[in-house]
Design a protein around this nucleic acid. Structure first.
Length: 283
DNA sequence: AGGGGTACCTGCGGGC
DNA sequence: TGCCCGCAGGTACCCC
């Protein structure tokens, strides 16, 4: 699920709620979802919340870090009162879920009776206690290290298809399948184009598109599609899914030119593009 | 290097 | 209704 905008949305919301709070309880329901010794967290205070690409962590007192990677279906829900934790995870105002639910894997309690539910349907995600933040190799696309110069360098030295390069977390971190598709549409570049054949103007358009689309994703609170894998920390949906031009729009008409959006598979996953707006020039 | 496949999990929707 | 198949916001690992 969560790509950079979703994780950043979670980080900003938690920032309002859990700073300076002390962890007083932790319950690991699914062993697979928690790495390390959970008892080390007890009586540690949350100093800061950090994000690196799609990873994020709580920096705690005593030089301890509680790291998270939400993978496809991880969610973090914040409850003010853990004794009556209810969230609008279905359709708002009609159906309400009480937590813990059947996908709740870890529960964290704070000293003021508030707490967090780490839910994860597919159990690919994890929380991990350690002495340092977990970080991807690639440059975070929101960081100051992500410059046009760095971007030109990685694009010119890669023979991969541009779509595959964009989601390569060893080169750039934060972009996943939804945003890669939307970024390429915004720059009017076909996902199958080979990186090193992109022209200077296209590289520059792509660089701008990355910044623009990622910032938009954050501004709209992330993207929640029909299956609701991503929800915000209060259980509500993001709004970026209303602004998708190509992702999951196969056979629907392009918002710009009315041509039908195409879906192809490569790199083991779906890519969506408009054959008219994003023509294949030379693959 | 890059490409392809599989695996990790669970659930949902479509086709027959 | 019921079953089988393909699909899903991520990543690691294998083989060619």
């Amino acid at each position: 699920m969560p790509e950079l905008p979703e994780v950043e949305t979670i980080r900003r919301q938690l920032n309002k709620h859990i700073l300076e709070k002390t962890i007083v309880g932790i319950k690991v329901i699914s062993k697979k979802s928690f790495i390390g010794d959970s008892s080390r967290l007890i009586n540690k205070k949350v100093i800061k919340i950090l994000r690196f690409g799609k990873y994020f962590c709580f920096q705690l007192t005593k030089n301890l870090f509680l790291n998270f990677h939400l993978k496809m279906t991880g969610q973090l829900l914040y409850a003010r009162d853990m004794n009556k934790a209810q969230f609008n995870t279905k359709i708002p105002f009609t159906k309400t879920d009480t937590m813990p639910g059947k996908t709740t894997r870890v529960i964290i309690n704070f000293n003021d009776n508030s707490g967090l539910f780490f839910n994860d349907l597919r159990k690919f995600g994890w929380a991990k206690v350690g002495n340092k933040p977990e970080q991807p190799k690639g440059v975070d696309v929101l960081s100051k290290e992500f410059t046009i110069h760095y971007f030109i360098k990685i694009v010119r030295t890669s023979k991969k298809r541009i779509k595959i390069l964009l989601i390569d977390q060893d080169k750039l971190s934060g972009i996943g399948n939804i945003y890669a598709n939307e970024i390429l549409f915004n720059a009017r570049i076909n996902p199958l184009r080979v990186s090193l054949f992109l022209k200077p103007l296209e590289i520059s358009k792509l660089f701008q598109a990355i910044k623009k689309i990622i910032e938009q994703g954050i501004r709209f609170g992330g993207s929640s599609s029909a299956d609701e894998a991503f929800i915000q920390t209060d259980g509500s949906k993001g709004r970026f899914q209303q602004r998708l031009y190509v992702y999951q729009r196969e056979d629907k008409s392009c918002h710009v030119c009315k041509t039908l959006i195409k879906r192809i598979k490569h790199g083991g996953r779906s890519s969506f593009y408009c054959p008219n707006c994003q023509p294949i020039i030379h693959i």
